[in-house]
Every structure is written in C-alpha cells, then in structure tokens.
C-alpha cells in the first residue's frame, strides 16, 4: 500500500489545531524526566548545601557554615588551581593537535577514513577503564626507573594530560573535520588565485571559517577538563599526598570533582554538607567559565 503524503492535508487548520492544543501532552514525558533527573536533584542539592546531614532524608538547616568551611579548605583550593592548570594545558594541547590532525586528514591522504576511525576509537572506552589501562602503561615504563605514577605529582599531571589527549583528540578531530569540509571550495580557490600561500589560506580563510567548530571544541574540552572525574580517580586517585606541618593532607593530583567526592564519602560524615557546598560552588564556577568562553569565541565567528 502506498501512503498518501498530502502536505496540504497535513497543514490544514482542521488537523493542526487539535494537535497544537495537545502539545503539552507531548511535552510531559520529557519534561517529567527532566524534572526528576535534573531540576529536583539540583534544587535539593542547593538546599542540602545549607544543611548538616548523613543521609539526605533527614537534614538539618545550618545556614552558610558549609560555604565558609569549603572556601577555607586548603585541599579544595589546591584542587581548584590544579584543575585550572590542567584545563588550560589540555585545552591547548587537545585543540591544537585535533585541528592539526583534522587538517591533515582533509588533504585527501590515502586511507584517511581508516585514520579517522582509529583516532576516534579511544573515545569509545570508559574513563575508569582508560585510567587503569594507562596507569599500567605508565607504571610499566616508570618502573624501569624505580618509580611510579603514584609517587610524583608531575607524573600524575602529565600522565593525565596524555590520557585525556589520547581520549579526546579523536572526538574533537571529527568536529574539526566536519568544519573544515564545510569551508566553501570557491573561497579557497579565490585565495589561491589571489596568490595566498598555504599558511595564509589556513590562517586567513580556513580558521575564521571553522570558528563555530572551535567554539564547540573549546567549550567541550574546557568543561570536560573541569568535570574530569573517572580518569582522575582511576589513574592516581590523588596520589601522592603531601603532608603539611599543620596536619592537613593535600592530595596533590586531586581535581575538583574528586575532591568533592572524597569530601562527601570520606569517613568524616560531618563534612557531607561541606561537600555539597563545594559542589554548588563547582557548578557556578564551571557555568561561569564556560559562558565567558562561549561569549569570547562566538564573537570571533564569521557569517558565511
């Protein structure tokens, strides 16, 4: 049987009106899921950050004490600066390398499809698994020098950078490839006719045209770095620790998300509210940074 697709019939007001009235009905399932899975936990999380609690069901309101504790916690501040440093380094490395590979793979090299697939594949492996695999690889190498990734903060830092590059470059590469391929051929041709060198074409024509891809890729790498958790947990788990003279213990390779997790699930149950407050601060921080970044790169985008 052949279906009759009559555009006029579908667009007739008789048919459209009742459907339009029902739009709420169609929104309910998704919106319900959104409320259950996002809005409610989010609001409850904010409420809990003002509470003292062991289980979330019976929490007592204590005001802003949790925020005071969180902001004076030296481990949290260390984790913040460490995360910021990590985010900057990985943002630069991942994007530069991903763009370079994407640019190379759009030059019609033989087997570029195979390369694209291979570069993309690490992205399909889960973070915890990756962390453990790479810790074995690093330790396999470092043990020859009688050391381990758990022993030096700098190994932990660069180890995590290598891991994240390995995992994310492929993904960003795909986005850049799509961007580069959509640069109109006639613009490149015009540049060539005007006598632009390959380098000039890249800087003056290609990069301005792929600004939307750059926006999205920097956004993704920046937020991914700030939110990084699994890989951090599995690769070093914060080791090595630094023991300060006042008794505080700085986990030198601990990033923000792991710091929050460790505060919450550490055996000091009095600190659960503090962890919650840290999580709210964390949210505000990530949201602000990514909005600023989006604004900044959007401004550079050109209309084609």
């Amino acid at each position: 049987m052949k279906l009759k697709r009559d555009a006029a019939a579908l667009n007739s007001k008789l048919l459209r009106r009742p459907i339009q009235k029902c739009f709420i009905l169609f929104l309910i399932p998704t919106f319900g899921a959104f409320i259950i899975g996002f809005i409610y936990p989010f609001l409850q999380g904010i409420y809990l950050s003002f509470c003292k609690f062991i289980t979330t069901r019976n929490a007592t309101f204590i005001g802003i004490d949790n925020y005071k504790t969180a902001l004076t916690d030296s481990t949290f501040l260390h984790a913040f600066w460490y995360t910021a440093l990590f985010a900057i380094v990985s943002l630069l490395l991942i994007n530069i390398l991903a763009f370079a590979i994407a640019y190379a793979l759009t030059r019609e090299i033989k087997g570029s499809n195979l390369f694209r697939t291979v570069f993309f594949m690490p992205n399909l492996i889960g973070g915890i698994v990756l962390g453990y695999i790479w810790s074995m690889i690093f330790d396999g190498v470092l043990s020859r020098y009688n050391t381990s990734i758990l022993l030096e903060s700098k190994y932990g830092f660069w180890g995590l950078i290598i891991l994240m590059c390995w995992q994310q470059i492929g993904y960003m590469m795909i986005i850049y490839i799509a961007g580069i391929q959509s640069v109109p051929e006639d613009m490149i041709e015009a540049a060539r006719i005007d006598g632009a060198s390959g380098w000039q074409t890249l800087i003056k024509v290609v990069i301005p045209s792929v600004m939307p891809s750059i926006t999205i890729c920097t956004f993704l790498t920046l937020t991914n770095s700030f939110k990084l958790f699994d890989q951090n947990l599995a690769l070093t788990g914060g080791s090595p620790f630094e023991f300060k003279s006042d008794g505080t213990i700085i986990k030198t390779t601990e990033m923000l998300a792991l710091n929050i997790y460790n505060t919450f699930y550490g055996s000091n149950t009095a600190a659960r509210g503090t962890a919650q407050a840290k999580a709210v601060i964390f949210f505000v921080l990530v949201a602000t940074i990514s909005i600023i970044q989006l604004r900044a790169t959007r401004n550079k985008e050109v209309q084609q």
Binding site: S245, D246, G247, I249, N268, A270, A271
Partner: peptide, 16 residues
C-alpha cells in the same frame, strides 16, 4: 606525620 599529625587532624575533623 601521617600517623601522628594525621590522627589529630582527623580527630578534629570528626569532632567539629
């Protein structure tokens, strides 16, 4: 340090 100072730190944290 972890053993002795760590004890005092954790005691303080647990009883704050």
């Amino acid at each position: 340090t972890a053993f002795v100072d760590g004890w005092a730190t954790q005691y303080k944290a647990a009883n704050s």
